Computed example of a mutant assay.
Amino acid sequence: MTEEEAEAVRRRPGGRAARVRQAVLAATLEALAEEGITRLSIAGVAARAGVNETTVYRRWGSREKLVLDAMLTGSSEGIPVPDTGAVRTDLAAFARALAEYLATPAGRSVAQAASLSSGDPGLAKAWQAFWQSRLDQAGAIVDRAVDRGELPAGTDTALALELLCSPLQTRALLGHRPIGPDLPERLADLVLDGLRGRAED
Rank of each mutant, 00 (worst) to 15 (best):
1 M>D: 15
21 R>Y: 02
22 Q>G: 08
23 A>Q: 01
24 V>W: 05
42 I>E: 01
44 G>I: 15
49 A>K: 03
51 V>W: 09
52 N>L: 14
56 V>Q: 06
58 R>P: 01
61 G>F: 12
62 S>E: 12
64 E>Y: 09
68 L>T: 06
70 A>T: 11
71 M>W: 07
72 L>S: 07
79 I>L: 14
82 P>H: 07
84 T>G: 08
87 V>K: 00
88 R>I: 04
90 D>R: 05
96 R>L: 11
99 A>Y: 14
104 T>Q: 03
106 A>C: 12
109 S>K: 03
118 S>L: 01
120 D>S: 09
120 D>E: 10
120 D>W: 02
123 L>W: 15
126 A>P: 06
128 Q>T: 13
129 A>N: 14
130 F>Y: 15
130 F>I: 02
131 W>P: 10
132 Q>E: 11
133 S>D: 09
134 R>D: 04
136 D>H: 12
138 A>R: 05
138 A>W: 14
139 G>F: 08
141 I>W: 07
142 V>E: 09
143 D>R: 15
144 R>D: 09
154 G>Y: 04
158 A>F: 02
162 E>N: 12
164 L>E: 12
167 P>S: 15
170 T>Q: 13
171 R>I: 06
176 H>L: 04
179 I>P: 06
180 G>D: 08
183 L>N: 11
184 P>Q: 04
184 P>S: 08
184 P>D: 02
186 R>Q: 13
187 L>N: 13
191 V>W: 00
191 V>G: 02
192 L>K: 00
200 E>S: 11
